[in-house]
């Protein structure tokens, strides 16, 4: 079936609800409205208000009560309406969700999924376009993944729900209703915490995730026309990192560029650059370069395209890498 990313998530959530009666969805406006992005459209109607729960408007409350539901044996899937609204729940996520297994010596697992639409480019007002992934990837006890296309969205959400660890599940909101793609419900998906080469190339490795995968693929297409061969890796998992495919690629190309919308300073790119340098030092022809959001708050939407790493900025970095 051909689905948009939002519809693929919807189908994945539906299947998870069908497969496991302990799966619950919680969030603001996810019931009758179907979520502000319609990701949960129709699910309350089909699974009832006990399993698709419209919550009061309190993010700390949503995540905190989900902790209790998980302690009672449920598998809560909570929706944070926008990236910038996750911070009231930050204490619950970092201090409670992330540490529950550790504190209880494994007696109290925390099989929770925290879905967060992330990234910019939708012309929104403040707090609706952020990329907080590094703050969660930095937190031991949490796993962090980001989907970039409908097929991954369909499988990854189900795998995240099946995971016995808490997973912060990042969804590129700009692509929710963008292009449809084929989703094969009978396929065998790759493991959740795995990175994948999504375009083979030989001159430089571009590491991307979420919304920047599309940018990287378009850049690779443009670069190919100019005789430069870019390999694109969709990281998919941000914590833990799946380094073997990354390192294998960089050893072949000798060059790596990381692209994310999040601020460059202490972003995922910093960790990747360090790991690549540690593991591939003698293969590198150039330093690992990073392209990302500037180290400023997210700007007003009329100039957000300058803040976001686009095709030109990525190709500029690729050129700089190749010039070494």
């Amino acid at each position: 079936m051909r689905l948009t990313l939002a519809k693929a998530l919807n189908a994945g959530l539906r299947r998870a609800l069908e497969d496991d009666p302990k799966v619950l969805l919680m969030g603001e406006d996810i019931g009758r409205l179907g979520g502000v992005f319609r990701v949960t459209d129709g699910l309350q109607k089909d699974f009832g208000e006990d399993r698709v729960i419209d919550s009061p408007l309190a993010e700390s409350g949503i995540v905190g009560t989900a902790v209790g539901l998980a302690l009672r044996g449920y598998r809560p899937v909570v929706e944070i309406q926008f990236d910038g609204f996750v911070y009231p729940a930050y204490d619950q996520i970092v201090s409670q969700v992330a540490k529950m297994r550790y504190r209880s010596r494994g007696r109290s697992p925390m099989p929770m999924v925290i879905r967060i639409p992330f990234g910019g480019g939708i012309g929104a007002v403040e707090h609706h376009s952020e990329s907080p992934e590094a703050q969660f990837a930095h937190t031991p006890g949490l796993k962090v993944v980001a989907c970039s296309n409908p097929a991954d969205a369909y499988w990854m959400i189900q795998q995240a729900i099946a995971s016995d660890d808490p997973v912060v599940f990042l969804e590129p909101k700009r692509q929710y209703h963008a292009d449809k793609a084929e989703v094969d419900e009978a396929a065998t998906p790759p493991p959740l915490f795995s990175s994948r080469v999504v375009r083979a190339g030989s001159d430089v490795t571009v590491l991307a995730y979420g919304p920047t995968v599309r940018t990287a693929l378009r850049a690779a297409e443009a670069a190919a026309g100019e005789g430069r061969s870019m390999e694109v890796v969709d990281l998919r998992t941000l914590s833990p990192l799946d380094l073997p495919p990354v390192l294998e690629s960089v050893r072949r190309t000798g060059r790596a560029v990381v692209v994310h919308e999040a601020h460059v300073n202490l972003g995922l790119g910093a960790e990747l650059a360090a790991r690549i340098t540690e593991e591939c030092f003698f293969s590198l022809e150039a330093p690992v370069l990073r392209v990302g959001g500037f180290d400023t708050p997210y700007p007003a939407s009329r100039i957000e395209e300058h803040f976001l790493p686009d095709l030109d900025r990525l190709l500029d970095a690729v050129d700089r890498s190749l010039a070494f």
């Binding site: 500037f294 180290d295 007003a300 009329r302 100039i303 803040f307």
Partner: peptide, 23 residues
């Protein structure tokens, strides 16, 4: 009018770090 793109860098700090100036 749309703002100047370089307005992105304004008023992040009272004392602007050199790194941000360079950016």
């Amino acid at each position: 009018p749309d703002p100047d793109p370089l307005a992105i860098f304004e008023q992040v700090y009272a004392e602007v770090p050199d790194e941000l100036v360079a950016q």
